[in-house]
Design a protein around this nucleic acid. Structure first.
Length: 602
RNA sequence: CGGGGAGUGGCGCAGCGGUAGCGCACCUGCUUUGGGAGCAGGAGGUCGGGGGUUCGAAUCCCCCUUCCCCGACCA
């Protein structure tokens, strides 16, 4: 492949686009890889297209290598298909819906579980046909509430999605493993720094759902890693170790700071109700407590905050109230809560929900009488058995002190609800958890029988009886990978591609007076081509050297070869865009040497 | 959905009552050729849309609309 800059459809920009915030976004636009068309919509220009095709190629090769077979579904799907899986309703506003001339409803698919399931159902009927894995590389649509970060989170994007079909759990496990391994090979080949994090809560070390994340400060996914062991999880799926008993019980201390509770050993005295006027928030409460001359000081961590939410089980018509108790210095992570309660829906309780239950006094809710009110109550595991708290007294302007779990209230259960913090403890080994940000590159997921049941995908088993198929679902963001890689690998000069994704192996720059650089460049370009390299050749006349060098840095091809000044000595200069190392190579035989250097790059 | 901001040549911006300008990019000529060249000449805009005020509106007023950023949201 030989691309000539003189004819390449490319215009680089000297200035950053105003709407871009992230380096990857700025650079992909400046380097002429993409152009914005509308909110969350981008055109891919020739260089960008080459990068996208390269990601596709790597993904396709690795999918085929595990025996997955490629198919292609329409992006435009009739409503009925998504009605059956309920996603026409459940997917919400993020689903692009449209109507044809006959007023029939259609959608632009965000993923294709339904069609994959239906396809297999239509063709296969026996357990002997399984397992099978199918994939497609296709444009997906999501009407994001707020597209951002350029191509990283658009409303239209290219994604590889695949699905595995097995007769039993052991088979699913194997298919899952194969995909997970393939994903590791894909991201390694593409040159990513990536982490695999658990995306499922509860099941410690469970592998039912994992995300492959590219760590980068600007990423919009939050995940935690243990400093000590290899535990890593999405922030919404994290499991935090409960502290040693805190507050009054075992022996004072514990974690969570403050000197609250009973201090030294033994249960605190019976709970007492205090007048605490105008203290509807944790901050105001703590301030008030510390001026009350109670013989101890209090911190937010000594208070028990009770948040009211409402839940609705699938199919149930009515919302039910649920109170969640967490230490007062902690925020509740609603996504984490929702993840654990799924498929039951969760929503914050509004004023009208509270009004329906007069026993709940806003700002002064305590768990002491929730049971008698018939309201369900769960606590975060940080609220350990035997711990003592300051909490609401269920009366306006009053709080209760030394309220002990197990003595003064008994929750209906525990629910990890708290937002993770740096320094929280790993539930596996007790090590410190560290929070990082990253971009989700891929997701492997044991879907199970959800769609197989909805679409009645069954095959005849060995005993002649029908068996419901179990599925895995696996995705890789193709266009997102290009941007994520740019985000991870760029430097102050511009893009910097690993070889597998780069639009070319070598960026050949001809510069200098007269014809010599161009005749030599032309010949070298041909030789490089002959050596099997993909060449981007800057053959522009009348473009000053500074512009050419600047472009070569911006475009990000990993090896830059300059034909110019060195010709007097019979050499060309070869520069590694990654290390910035420069070597002079004799023009005679340069192609072979350059091919060798290129092959040595990552 | 909440908060902030912006719509003026391809891109980035200035102008804020007197009929549109700058930088980059582009075109022509000459010079220049190892770090975003110089000189000279040139092309390109119904100033987001509609209505109003005014002798006169990019500029003031009203309505509409689109877009961007932060947050909420995001299988």
């Amino acid at each position: 492949m030989l691309l000539r800059m003189s004819t390449l459809f490319l215009r680089t920009l000297r200035e950053d686009p105003v709407d871009a915030e992230l380096p990857s976004h700025k650079l992909l636009v400046r380097a002429g890889y993409v152009r914005r068309v509308g909110p969350g919509l981008y055109s891919w220009l020739p260089l960008g297209m080459l990068a996208v095709r390269n990601v596709e190629r790597v993904v396709r090769e690795e999918m085929l290598a595990i025996g997955a077979q490629e198919v292609q579904f329409p992006a435009l799907v009739p409503r009925e298909v998504f009605e059956r899986s309920r996603r026409w309703q459940d997917y919400g506003d993020a689903l692009f819906r449209l109507r044809d001339r006959r007023d029939a409803d259609y959608l632009l698919a965000p993923t294709h579980e339904e069609l994959f399931t239906l396809l297999v159902k239509g063709e296969y009927t026996s357990y002997r046909d399984l397992p099978v894995s199918l994939f497609q590389i296709q444009t997906k649509y999501r009407d994001e509430a707020r597209p951002r970060a350029g191509v990283l989170r658009g409303r239209e994007f290219v994604m590889k999605d695949s699905y595995s079909f097995d007769v039993d759990d052991a088979g699913l496990e194997r298919s899952y493993r194969a995909h997970r391994d393939a994903y590791e090979r894909i991201f390694r080949r593409l040159g990513f720094d990536y982490r695999i994090v658990s995306a499922v809560s509860g099941a410690m070390g469970g592998s039912a759902s994992e995300e492959l994340i590219a760590p980068t400060p600007s990423g919009e996914d939050t995940f935690v890693q243990c400093e000590n062991c290899d535990y890593a999880a999405n922030a919404e799926a994290v499991v935090i170790a409960p502290p040693q008993a805190r507050g009054g019980v075992v022996d004072g201390g514990g974690m969570g700071g403050g000197t609250g509770g009973a201090g030294s050993g033994g249960l605190p005295g019976p709970q007492q109700v205090l007048d605490t006027p105008d203290t509807p928030t944790i901050a105001t409460l703590v301030e008030r407590l510390n001026t009350m001359d109670l013989g101890r000081s209090f911190a937010a961590a000594d208070t028990l905050k009770n948040l009211v939410v409402k839940t609705r089980a699938p199919g149930a018509g009515e919302w039910e109230l649920l109170v969640i108790g967490v230490p007062g210095d902690r925020d509740v992570d609603m996504k984490r809560v929702a993840g654990q309660l799924e498929p039951t829906e969760v929503a914050p309780a509004g004023p009208e929900d509270l009004a329906s239950q007069p026993g709940l006094v806003k700002g002064y809710i305590g768990p002491q009488r929730l049971a008698e009110l018939g309201i369900r109550f769960v606590v975060d595991p940080l609220v350990t058995e035997g711990s003592a708290w300051v909490t609401g007294a269920n009366e306006p302007d009053r709080h209760a002190l030394d309220v002990v779990r197990g003595r003064d209230f008994v929750p209906d259960g525990e629910l990890g609800a708290v937002e993770v913090r740096d320094g929280d403890r790993c539930a596996r080994c007790g090590g410190m958890l560290q929070i990082s940000r990253g971009i989700e590159l891929g997701h492997v997921f044991q879907l199970g029988r959800k769609y197989a049941e909805v679409f009645d995908l069954r095959v005849t088993g060995p005993d002649g009886r029908p068996v419901t198929v179990t599925m895995g679902s696996y995705g890789v963001g193709i266009t997102r990978a290009v941007a994520a890689l740019a985000e991870q690998t760029h430097d102050e000069l511009g893009l910097r591609w690993p070889r597998e994704i780069s639009p070319a192996d070598v960026h050949l720059v001809a510069t200098g007076k007269g014809e010599e650089p161009y005749t030599a460049g032309e010949q070298l370009a041909g030789e490089l081509l002959g050596a099997g390299l993909r060449v981007l050749y800057d053959d522009r006349r009348g473009t000053s050297p500074g512009v050419k060098f600047g472009d070569s840095e911006l475009l990000g091809v990993p090896l830059i070869v300059t034909v110019g000044r060195g010709l007097a000595k019979g050499v060309v200069e070869v520069r590694d865009r990654w290390s910035d190392e420069r070597v002079e190579v004799p023009l005679a035989g340069a192609a072979g040497e350059i091919a060798r250097l290129s092959a040595a790059q990552r």
